[in-house]
């Protein structure tokens, strides 16, 4: 790919947004515990001690130390602030987990991250492809009965939130007709067939609930885009040239309508991630959402702060990567 001024400018603007997303997100996470009237460290410590029967004094001291560090309460505000950024972006050291002492928080996050990433990547890719294919067809052949039926269907499905679909699926396929497990339990290890089968089996219902809901939006927006595109002069010209309807759809309408859908994907990753967190919790799926949830249940604040900071960086990075796909699809940014 030839790097042009236009491409360079595009790259710079996306990079600016990427950096600014991380700065804003991490800054909010840094200040939220500070907005409280009481000292978060002592409050957490009291809650933690009330919960467990007995704790070694050294363990208490160690926890106080890492809590103070986790919330970044050492030194001046400025040094606390930069220290927090350093931990989130460079050292990834959030101290040990309280609930699974002394395993480092980062190790727990490292175990959970692939589950969330796998679930999200698979469901986003599936719903994006399925939704845009349906939307393209529905928008290109606006007057057909099936295109109207598909649109009505997606208008009904799109606004239903993940957790409602998840509850429906749990009631239907884990309770009334018990095909799938109520909670995730994975058997086997490594790259064995059993293990992979078990992962797919356990991921099916959470994945399905995300695909069912996620697809609707792409159908609705793609239908509008493809519908407008079908009335463009270039498409009329292609028709007059005698190109087949199929070639017009694939060669003219689709490329132009897919561009805004990539931008739209980048904008929606944050929201989709939130949906994945809730879905994971409802299905006890061992990803980041479940990790944060168990951390909350056990007042494991090192874990909560660590998992939330890392997830903000991960979402920002994913958004940035999707943004970077844009110039590969849009020739206007590559050339001239």
């Amino acid at each position: 790919m030839v790097i042009t001024v236009k491409f360079f400018r595009f790259l710079l603007s996306r990079l600016a947004v990427y950096i600014s997303v991380i700065v804003i997100g991490v800054t909010i996470v840094f200040f939220v515990p500070r907005a409280l009237p009481s000292d978060p460290v002592e409050a957490m410590l009291a809650r933690l001690l009330a919960q467990s029967d007995y704790m070694e004094p050294e363990a208490v001291a160690a926890i106080r130390g890492t809590l103070t560090e986790t919330f970044g309460l050492e030194g001046s505000l400025a040094s606390q602030y930069f220290g927090f950024f350093k931990r989130v972006l460079l050292t990834h050291d959030f101290g040990p987990s309280f609930s699974q002492y002394p395993i480092p928080v980062m190790e727990l996050i490292g175990r959970a991250l692939p589950w969330t990433m796998g679930l999200m990547m698979a469901t986003i890719a599936l719903s994006w492809v399925i939704g845009n294919a349906i939307g393209l067809l529905a928008g290109f052949r606006k007057e057909k009965w099936y295109s109207k039926a598909l649109e009505s269907l997606s208008i009904v499905f799109y606004p239903i939130p993940y957790y409602i679909v998840a509850l429906f699926l749990i009631i239907a396929f884990a309770h009334l007709i018990p095909i799938f497990p109520l909670a995730t339990s994975v058997r086997g290890r490594g790259l064995s067939f059993d293990h992979i089968k078990s992962i797919l089996f356990n991921s099916f219902l959470p994945g399905l609930s995300m695909v069912v809901v996620g697809t609707g939006w792409w159908v609705i927006s793609m239908k509008t885009l493809a519908g407008n595109m079908s009335e463009e002069d270039s498409v009329n010209f292609a028709r007059l040239k005698g190109l087949s309807e199929h070639r017009i759809m694939m060669g003219y309408v689709m490329p132009a309508s897919l561009l805004p859908q990539i931008t739209s994907l980048a904008l929606r990753i944050g929201g989709l991630f939130g949906g994945a967190l809730v879905t994971e919790i409802l299905f006890s799926y061992p990803g980041l959402g479940m990790l944060v949830y168990s951390g909350i249940a056990q007042n494991d604040y090192n874990l909560i702060m660590g998992a939330i900071s890392i997830s903000i960086v991960a979402v920002a990075t994913a958004t940035f990567i999707v943004d970077l796909l844009y110039p590969f699809v849009d020739p206007r940014i590559r050339y001239t």
Binding site: P33, G270, G275, V278, I296, S311, I312
Partner: peptide, 11 residues
């Protein structure tokens, strides 16, 4: 818009 809001709300 790109900052994931749910994790922050959960915190």
């Amino acid at each position: 818009i790109a900052v994931p809001n749910l994790p922050i709300l959960i915190l």
